[in-house]
Design a protein around this nucleic acid. Structure first.
Lengths: 114, 114
DNA sequence: TAGTTTCCCATAGGGAAGCTATGGGAAAGA
DNA sequence: TCTTTCCCATAGCTTCCCTATGGGAAACTA
């Protein structure tokens, strides 16, 4: 593969990973691996969250108080760290969703102008 | 203002600035200042392109061969550098537009899942 | 005509956040 | 026993935008 293939794979646009994680956790506590799978599934295989992106992002969100974490065995009986949305995280989610939609709509307007 | 106000202003999401510039230039050659104004206008004042973002972006696009530049006096009789889309730039625009729409739709699916 | 505003270009330095590469450990299945 | 699957995590790099800064020329303004 070439060196300029940041474009060739479908990646998460910078700034939206947090939003995706927050939204995913809104449906209940989940471990990291599960979050990645769910995003992959819900996006119909378009979005792939790399583990090297996911865990640092979760760390940042822990520090900011948007999520909390607890160790529990997973459904498959592995050691797993379950993340939950905090009240602050839920608020942040709302902010990011509306910001995303506002900016996306604005870009669409530019793009769709003939 | 605080120190964490990358969020407080409406900014260009990383990765989309090129797309916006390419699309803007698709309607004809334009100087940098004009590009910024047009994006601001078309987005209904939502998007603001800072000059410290714009000119480096144009440099990158020159290097990649997506645009060419020529000096001409502007409509206001100032010295101005007019940028034009190349064939390669037009192709890149198409790629980025479809990528943007694909990824945006995917994120929307995740966001809108109850 | 001196001063200010508007227009227009450009770089340096810094930070945020993604990616690749890497490493590990434990359960399950072959 | 060996491989696969599941699950966590860090280090180092790169890209790309922002802030801050600087300059210069036309045009308006007092």
């Amino acid at each position: 593969m070439g060196k300029n293939d940041r474009q060739s794979k479908t990646e998460i646009p910078p700034g939206t990973l947090c939003l995706l994680i927050l939204k995913t956790l809104a449906s209940g506590p989940m471990h990291g691996y599960g979050i990645a799978q769910r995003i992959h599934l819900l996006s119909k295989e378009v979005l792939e969250v790399e583990e090297g992106s996911l865990y640092p992002a979760l760390q940042r969100m822990l520090i900011k108080g948007w999520v909390t974490a607890e160790w529990h065995p997973s459904e498959n009986n592995r050691r797993a760290r379950y993340y939950s949305l905090t009240k602050l995280g839920r608020k942040q989610m709302g902010t990011e969703v509306s910001e995303f939609e506002k900016v996306t709509a604005a870009i669409q307007r530019v793009i769709e102008t003939p």
